[in-house]
């Protein structure tokens, strides 16, 4: 009943015009709301960048200056003398780089094995890997720390790398991808005399670049920004990674030299922005899959 009344009203010219007007008004409102939200989301970053370009003395001026007029670059050199920022940077690059590369190798190979190679207990072992996917790192941190300390690795960069070089998530991601690939490719190559490892390296691995990129980017983002494990495993500031180093710096300064801390934060963010700019596609796709871990 209601619906017939409504639809007949919609068909009259004036009703139609009203609906078109309402739709246009709705769109304008939608754009306004979206732009406002996007600006709100951007504001903390914008403030951080602008304030990092002001002198420490003026960084709390009110009203806050949102645009960096007369940018001052001294904070960007000051932060390197306030803390060993270059060391933090190198540590972060080494730790994140090693985790990304090693996980790529182990995940691609074990994902391939679980998808393409038949061996005894394959499904049982894969189920075990899958189960570890769900284990949140925070809840196993105490035993992991004990193992690390038994290995004599406390306060070393290796303590961050070693526990995560076998990636359950990566294995799962790569397996799903290899499962979709035709087995005939490998069989053809084998007939031509290629060994099993060569089939993997020259035929299948090059075809799996897309999920490898997704895995690399997700891992980069996760480990570049990691704070919890470094806080527990590292003691000497010469081993600190960027997030831990910056929080320590902020703790030392209190609310003193805000703009210097912010310069460090902006510098730490730059590599992420660069990676994002080049790999947005993989990252956004990966988030949907990555939500799994």
């Amino acid at each position: 009943m209601t619906s017939t009344v409504l639809s007949s009203r919609a068909k009259t010219p004036s009703g139609l015009r009203a609906r078109v007007a309402a739709r246009i008004a709705g769109r304008i409102l939608a754009v306004v709301a979206l732009v406002a939200s996007a600006v709100l989301v951007a504001l903390p970053i914008v403030w951080a960048i602008s304030t990092s370009l002001r002198t420490p003395a003026t960084s709390y001026d009110q009203p806050p200056a949102w645009l960096p007029t007369d940018p001052v670059w001294t904070n960007y050199s000051a932060v390197f003398t306030a803390v060993p920022l270059l060391t933090f940077f190198i540590n972060s690059v080494v730790v994140t780089g090693l985790i990304v590369v090693l996980q790529l190798i182990t995940s691609t190979m074990s994902g391939y094995a679980f998808a393409m190679v038949r061996f005894r207990g394959r499904n049982a072992i894969f189920a075990m890997v899958l189960a570890t996917l769900m284990v949140p790192a925070q809840t196993t941190i105490i035993p992991v720390y004990i193992i690390i300390s038994r290995l004599g690795l406390v306060d070393s960069r290796a303590s961050l790398v070693l526990p995560v070089i076998g990636g359950a998530f990566g294995t799962f991601l790569m397996r799903q991808y290899f499962l979709q690939m035709p087995r005939e490719l490998g069989e053809a190559a084998r007939v031509d005399g290629a060994g099993p490892f060569r089939v993997f390296r020259q035929i299948y691995a090059p075809l799996a670049m897309a999920p490898m990129a997704t895995l690399a980017v997700l891992n980069f983002s996760a480990y570049w920004n990691e704070f919890f494990r470094p806080l527990i495993f590292l003691q000497d500031s010469s081993n600190f990674t960027l997030p831990l180093g910056l929080v320590t710096l902020q703790g030392n300064f209190g609310t003193g030299s805000v703009s210097i801390v912010l310069a460090g934060i902006v510098l730490a963010l730059l590599p992420s922005i660069v990676v994002f700019a080049f790999t947005q596609k993989y990252l956004v796709e990966g988030v949907a899959v990555g939500s799994f871990r």
Binding site: V41, W224, L246, I265
Partner: peptide
């Protein structure tokens, strides 16, 4: 808009918490 809303995911939680600590400072 996707890019705009996605960008915060790239920032480390520790770093942005420092920024929010300053932004929400009682006095300044």
């Amino acid at each position: 808009f996707r890019t705009a809303f996605f960008l915060p995911l790239l920032v480390s939680a520790a770093s942005i918490s420092i920024v929010f600590t300053y932004l929400f400072n009682d006095k300044f």
